[in-house]
Design a protein around this nucleic acid. Structure first.
Lengths: 346, 346
DNA sequence: GTGAAAGCGCTAACAG
DNA sequence: CTGTTAGCGCTTTCAC
């Protein structure tokens, strides 16, 4: 790597002092420099192929123009859109993101957050919120700016941007009730996640309001396998079988598909299934999945904007804002009226 | 953010000089320091919650322990596994990755690569290789270390890690021929991508070897919509209709599904379809997709290891290695013997 | 409007 | 084994 031109090289070529080059090249201070000088410096910089060393700048200004993004697993299809949303808001302000995957492990998360902090990120975006969120708590204690996205962390007053989970579940239940379903089960996400508890609570409430017979079973994780396992359990007694399954997310719903198929049951003919998130390609599944669309890109973009606001407003005060973005039901092929013959209450 | 402890603070508390702290805390130089002193320094560091500022370190050592990863679009499901593979190889060596999305735009890519370089990344991993790859060419000219992954860039002698595209296509064609197909079309990826040309060439060759009647139509992009558009064209004359479609990747195959459905044709009953990549959830599509599994995680990991090798071996020479990882056919539900009645050659 | 000088936090010679 | 001294490349007072 041929050694890169520094500000001193440019200064020499332009016949001015390094300080002047710095001022001339920075849009904010460019006004304080003679226009002719600015032009001369620009020319010299271009000729040398000069690009500022942002590491050096960061050391001086103690800001890296970098934010850390903490996700459980990039491989979960809801996160890439969120990350792109984050970047879309960051890029115009000159910030970039560095992403880490925790795989849901708290100890790993603390290590990763530490490494992010060593890299002097200016702030953090957590997509990993949960109830005993050690990493986030520690970050908060150290007075570092951060925001939560998608899920929030109970008791940690970072601002959060989330989808309207309760409204989503209400829409699902209304749809199912309109179709004629009366016996419904909810595959609830882990209780340690706000999405898990909020969706489950909304499920219980709405079932009561609609006079549905609703049951909640709790998943240990948002995964396909958990969905399969839980659904298998729920299908036990044919007489007592639910006519619809409301999954806590699309992965659990996919697991329900698998269990149904393994039991020789058809979806939606025998059992309706609905997911949550509308992950990419949900419409291409077998059957196309009825689910709740969560605007993950917007969630990310909004979270990034919020963080940028915190960073630029030098005020230290953290206001525990909670931005709730609307979601909406997407009806596809995994829901249908219940089979009257078999589904009639015993 | 309470101002963080620096090495000077630790030195003061431990009653030693800053240089000694630096040595004591660095595993490589720790041996040159009295064990008692090391212990004292460690204690002081811990007490102050000291974490080294890697920006400052980077400025001094001119290495950021960061690599840039250039992808077309993180939202394309083949990239998250690749990125995780990259990170899995980087993390143990203390490196982290910063990812940028080009959306296939060359101008954007150059801008993004520039910003990566300003951030002093130690090297680059391009998942965006194509024939007139301006950004990569420029990087090469500047003597910066980089590797290509998944696709390579013609004429740019960076090392590359790719899947065995030709073998994959051969397996697909052998499978189709064994099923009894004789008239096959290939939805080829863009000719500017190595994956596009290699797969298309292998298709032509193998068709000849097997005595199949093979036709190639070229896609403008690896997208679902292109797949739909192309398939619609190919379906034109029922008498001349292919019995199987070999798509350049899973997205094109998915587009073929859509077109078939729109035409009232069933897959695999009327037309077989095969994809390439085995993207996540390909087995959950309607029908479950027969495709070629490409080990994206391993591709990423291998590429990262290769880059690390380049970075640590101070030798400037670039050896244009080309690592080809095996792929394998995954037979699922989108391929079946051709319908004898309709498929009989006119 | 521009030069001079200091210093961000760290590491790497060089002494001793 | 440890202290001293420089300096990475940049921005930012402070003079003039």
């Amino acid at each position: 790597m041929t050694t890169r031109a520094t500000i001193a090289d440019v200064a020499r070529l332009a016949g001015v002092h390094a300080g002047t080059v710095s001022r001339a090249l920075n849009p904010k201070t460019e006004g304080r420099v003679n226009r002719a000088t600015v032009a001369r410096v620009r020319r010299a910089a271009k000729q040398l192929g000069y690009t500022p060393n942002s590491i050096a700048r960061g050391l001086r200004t103690s800001s890296s123009l970098t934010v850390g993004v903490v996700v459980p697993d990039l491989t979960n299809p809801i996160f890439p859109p969120m990350v792109r949303g984050i970047e879309s808001a960051l890029a115009p302000r000159g910030y970039s993101a560095v992403i880490v995957n925790t795989d849901g492990r708290d100890d790993l998360e603390r290590l990763l957050v530490d490494s992010l902090l060593q890299r002097q990120v200016d702030g953090l975006i957590f997509a990993t919120g949960h109830s005993e969120h050690a990493a986030a708590a520690e970050v908060f204690e150290r007075g570092i700016k951060a925001v939560m996205v998608n899920r929030d962390a109970r008791g940690i007053p970072f601002p959060a941007v989330v989808g309207d989970d309760a409204a989503g579940i209400r829409d699902v239940l209304d749809h199912l009730a309109a179709l004629g379903h009366r016996r419904v089960v909810h595959l609830a996400g882990p209780a340690s996640f706000s999405t898990g508890t909020i969706r489950a609570a909304a499920f219980v409430t709405r079932c009561a309001e609609l006079g549905l017979e609703g049951r909640v079973v709790a998943a240990a994780a948002y995964s396909v396998d958990e969905g399969t396992r839980l659904t298998r359990g729920v299908l036990g007694d044919p007489a007592d079988r639910p006519t619809a399954i409301v999954a806590g997310n699309d992965l659990l719903a996919l697991g329900a598909y698998h269990a149904l198929r393994a039991e020789g049951l058809r979806c939606p003919d025998d059992v309706s299934v609905v997911g949550f998130n509308d992950m990419p390609f949900a419409g291409d599944f077998q059957p196309p999945m009825t689910t709740v669309r969560v605007p993950h890109f917007d969630l990310g973009a909004e979270a990034a904007r919020l963080l940028l606001g915190q960073l630029e407003a030098e005020a230290t005060g953290v206001s525990p804002v909670r931005i709730v973005l609307p979601v909406h039901l997407v009806v596809r092929g995994s829901t249908a009226p219940p089979d009257q013959v078999h589904a009639a209450p015993g």
